[in-house]
Design a protein around this nucleic acid. Structure first.
Length: 217
DNA sequence: TTTAGGATAGTCT
DNA sequence: GACTATCCTAAAT
């Protein structure tokens, strides 16, 4: 039922610096095969994390049990759990050990839309994969997919050569307030694509709870 | 329409 | 103990 997908991206594709891989990923197709069915998304928004140079990177403070995949060879998925309920997915790139990765922030569902809808019944079609955690939910990506080789021909989680995004439509946005690798643009997205989330100004999360210092409850 | 705040659990200091 | 590369809902306009 599903149309045959284009060939896999070679590992070579990921064995480059993040600022090359990230924009090149726009328009490529991420597919996840599950017992529920196959779902594929065309990537429309990504964000680069330059390893130890980026204070916001999980790799900034060195290798830990959680981020170990980032320090491995390129072409692998780094999936992490955050905010107590969400998963986000990165693609490791750069030479082995450099801990660079690209966060997949948004995509457009191009196959398996019915399956994705079942997973996110309350989402409009446009919102199915609009956001890093939504993308993972729509594709059924969770902790089990951490460390998977997305270049493996028989792999369940793979990246395929999609129609590359028009270079004229690729926009970049450096993050304000982050130093190190200043000339590297951090965000990449396809201008005008409805599945790209609107730019959100750097909003530090404010703590809500006051500490219950005095006895009580 | 925009904005604000709550929820949730794994990870690191 | 405090933080997080987030999402969803409710309330206000």
């Amino acid at each position: 039922m599903n149309a045959p997908l284009p060939p896999l991206l070679p590992r070579d594709f990921f064995d480059r610096p993040v600022d090359e891989v990230a924009p090149a990923l726009l328009g490529q197709v991420l597919r996840h095969r599950t017992p529920d069915g196959d779902v594929a998304a065309r990537l429309t928004e990504v964000e680069a994390y330059a390893g130890p140079l980026d204070p916001a990177s999980h790799a900034y403070r060195g290798r830990t049990a959680r981020n170990a995949v980032m320090f491995g060879p390129p072409g692998h998925a780094y999936v992490y759990f955050t905010y107590g309920m969400h998963f986000c997915m990165n693609l490791v790139c750069g030479p082995d050990g450099t801990s660079m990765a690209v966060l997949l922030r948004a995509g457009e569902i191009v196959a398996g839309e019915d399956v994705a809808r079942e997973r996110r019944p309350r989402s409009s079609v446009r919102d199915l994969a609009r956001g890093p955690a939504r993308l993972c939910q729509a594709l059924g990506i969770a902790r089990e997919q951490n460390g998977l080789d997305v270049c493996a021909p028989d792999g369940s989680l793979t990246v395929h050569a999609g129609e590359p995004a028009d270079p004229a439509l690729i926009r970049t946005g450096p993050r304000t307030g982050v130093n190190g690798a200043k000339e590297v643009p951090w965000r990449f997205w396809i201008d005008g694509d409805p599945t790209v989330s609107p730019y959100r100004p750097h909003v530090p999360r404010q703590r809500k709870k006051s500490v219950p210092t005095r006895g009580g409850r």
